[in-house]
């Protein structure tokens, strides 16, 4: 937890004249495991895409590994939201993972033997090796997410960014995915957008609430306010399994 891998200062972003993010300050440290929560339309996915260099900020500064995101986006592993992907697409599990081995720029886009070995190793890591020849459509939501994580892993990322990886996954599948992420966190910085804060609370190290502005909560303290943001309705905390809860108000709201 020494130097920041992502550093955002006074960032503003609007879409079609509508402000989406206002005066965001955000720092993500090496080997952090951060959960990002907030209401739908609060700007979570937008913030991720700014970090990946897919969007340009109106004002402010983003530095990833000390450089503009576009130059270093290949060092970030990205697991997009499942719903944006065409499920009928004729593609096998192994071919999806191999996508992480694409070379940048213009060249003959074939895969080498090494690429296949790496892709299979990544599938093994997420326990999906036996499904490598399956059509991606034949997998369950949780299995598909693990394939997307494997695809991000073959890019040998230093940061792993996941956008709602457990949105269409049952409780058992969620646990499996978080366990995989926890193992990966020994080497890789992880940022995960999620609504299941309670399920995540034993894995994460800190929480950021995104609702136009961003509020940070250092150690993994789950507050009532955070749960309200995550579930978008008042929540009462019950002490079981949440020993370190502290209620804190956001400054300036």
């Amino acid at each position: 937890m020494d130097k920041p891998v992502i550093d955002i200062k006074n960032l503003w972003f609007s879409f079609n004249g509508e402000p989406v993010l206002q005066d965001v300050n955000f720092t993500l440290y090496h080997k952090e495991f951060l959960a990002m929560i907030g209401p739908n339309g609060g700007g979570k996915t937008t913030l991720l895409k700014l970090m990946l260099g897919l969007f340009e900020a109106d004002r402010g500064e983003i530095r990833v590994f000390g450089r503009p995101p576009k130059q270093v986006a290949h060092r970030i592993g990205y697991v997009p939201q499942d719903i944006h992907i065409n499920k009928n697409f004729p593609i096998s599990v192994l071919d999806v993972v191999l996508m992480g081995k694409l070379r940048s720029g213009i060249s003959w886009s074939h895969y080498k033997k090494d690429d296949r070995i790496t892709a299979q190793a990544a599938l093994k890591k997420v326990e999906m090796e036996q499904f490598k020849n399956r059509h991606i459509d034949e997998l369950s939501g949780g299995q598909r997410q693990r394939v997307f994580i494997a695809r991000a892993l073959v890019t040998e990322p230093e940061i792993l960014i996941l956008d709602e990886p457990t949105a269409s996954v049952d409780a058992k599948g969620q646990g499996e995915i978080y366990t995989i992420l926890k193992d990966l966190n020994e080497k890789v910085t992880i940022l995960v957008v999620s609504h299941d804060l309670l399920a995540l609370s034993s894995y994460i190290k800190s929480v950021a609430c995104v609702n136009r502005r961003v509020h940070f909560h250092g150690a993994a303290e789950v507050t009532e306010e955070m749960l309200e943001m995550a579930y978008q309705c008042p929540v009462e905390l019950i002490a079981h399994g949440l020993p370190h809860r502290v209620l804190r108000t956001h400054n300036g709201d």
């Binding site: 897919l54 990205y78 997009p80 992907i85 697409f89 996508m99 694409l102 720029g105 074939h110």
Partner: peptide, 19 residues
């Protein structure tokens, strides 16, 4: 082939890989 495949399947991911 593989560039077109990635672009058609997941354009954003392909873009991040520098395709």
């Amino acid at each position: 082939y593989n560039d077109f495949l990635a672009m058609s399947y997941d354009e954003e991911f392909a873009q991040l890989r520098g395709v």
